[in-house]
Amino acid sequence: MDFKIARDDTWPEISFEERIGTAEFRIHERAHIVVDGDTCRGCSTRECVVACPANLFVPTSDGGILFNYENCFECGTCYLVCNKEGAISWNYPEGGYGVVFHRT
């Protein structure tokens, strides 16, 4: 057995890009989730930024939220934790598109 463990580097902490890169996403050109920037500007709690497992909600320097739908697990966490009416309009992607799990 040639499985070796580097004791000083037990599991190199992987970057978020590498982490999300382990999942397959078949990206459709139409965004299935749309975030309303104006509503977010007035939000101080930012639940989505903490909770989205795919880390897709990024605060911008001007107090807004940058959202990209492409690497989304379609889990529903964001619309459940966001308590601002109308901030997130959430749908499933077109049939056949979006995340495709393999070893889950």
Partner: peptide
Amino acid sequence: IEGATVQEYSAHV
């Protein structure tokens, strides 16, 4: 889990 590499990351509610 020492030495293990992440093969797939996933989430669900």
